[in-house]
Design a protein around this nucleic acid. Sequence first.
DNA 1: TACAATGTTTTAAG
DNA 2: CCTTAAAACATTGT
Length: 284
Amino acid sequence: MPELAEVEYYRKRWDCGLGVPIEDVRVRPEARIYRGASPHVLARQLTGDRLKQSLRHGKQMLFRTAGGGWLGIHLGMSGELVLASAGEPPGRHDHLVLQAGRHRLIFRDPRMFGRVRWHAGPDTPPWWSQLPPEVLEDAFTAARLRAALRRHARAPLKAVLLRQEHFPGIGNWMADEILWRAALHPALPAGRVSDEETGRLWKTIRTVARDALRVIGTDWGTPPDSWLFNHRWTDGGRCPKTGAPLQRAAIGGRTTCWSPARQTLPGAARVRKRPASAGKQGAG
DNA sequence: TACAATGTTTTAAG
DNA sequence: CCTTAAAACATTGT
């Protein structure tokens, strides 16, 4: 569920716990989200410490503790940060629970595609400092976008936009919103985007990121109907710009929504229909 | 019931 | 080595 703006929203949910001593830490050590890291070390070191700062970069979150620790959280597909009061019993999918004063800071993730990591030391963990520039930073230049498009020249534009090593924070709905606003077909091979279109795409990436943070990242507000957002999941949805019916298909492995009236594929490139169960060719 | 879900990672193939 | 596509991951809701 969470992309750039949703992660930003969740990050702030724990704000009321900043500065409050953590009396107790509960973990579900068998949960997949710890991925080889030791949840017990995390629990021991976090106990008695306090969170003093929260950061977000793309879809990654990082909580800095007063005692020199770093708690990294990725929400995966179904994760969320929840605030509960001290008395409530833990939910079935609450994999990390920090008891801080009257607050209970909870990482909840039913599908467990998320991730929790722990790092102790004065500097940010290596995996954090190596993240690519955010799409709203100055370092995210049109030249960087052009290089990413060149590198994945044969992949559909939609699939390229989802790559976190180039566009941290962009997810399925943002990618569709960006391509729709920029009037670029999601199946267009990235290498065929013209210079003029690249400039347009670069501006649109930044506009959508800003809009998303403003509308969703602050209080999870509902975007206006002028966005594709409100129309993309409903059957029979119509393009807010043209009124024409929207289309949906799997592109780049994800359900994709676009407006055929404004996002067209030039010439040879066509949307390839998924092979209708062609039967498995036995490997021999 | 079977399928899809706002995400990554692994595996396979070219 | 590189890129691309598909499967896998685990659970819930329609």
